[in-house]
Amino acid sequence: MQRLGDFRLPPFFNYPPYFTLQPVRETREKQVQLWKDLILDYCRSQKIHTISLEEDFPLFSNPKIERSLSHEAKEVFLAALVSEGRAEWMDKGHKKCLILWLRIQDWANLILNFVKDNGLEVMTIEEIRSGIDTRGTELEGIDRGVLMRALRQLEQKGKAAIFKGTSADDEGVKFSV
């Protein structure tokens, strides 16, 4: 089985037409579906939050069969994720894309369950992203933007309160479980 780092690639990764944007509608729909799933799976397993179209992305080329996606194809597949709310363009030029392998709503629930399970009430933002408590969980290394949006959603529901510390990188959050 072919691997990309520790990620297991499906057999069709070696199917050359998988890397050519298919012009026939039904075929393309299926192709786009397979790409969306693979991008999300890969990003989740590798904890990748952003994909830059300008830079090489390991999933978008297969040196073994000497095929890689065109810029147009990359944009089509990411745009399909965007339209489903599983990704967001980070700039107007569609050069960088934020991948939400969990929706903001799901991140919020994950955080809430995490603090409940561990009996935590107050955490700084940095603690959530790189503290000892979250090490080895999905929260480790979470994108700061994504985290803040999830926390703000909790705040709106009255489940958390964000407070400012002495400096900008010293924000914290108090959960009301």
């Binding site: 037409p17 039904e26 299926k30 579906q33």
Partner: peptide, 12 residues
């Protein structure tokens, strides 16, 4: 055309 043969729910 293999695209229709592949089960998207179970790619491995």
């Amino acid at each position: 055309n293999l695209f229709n043969e592949i089960d998207a729910q179970n790619i491995y």
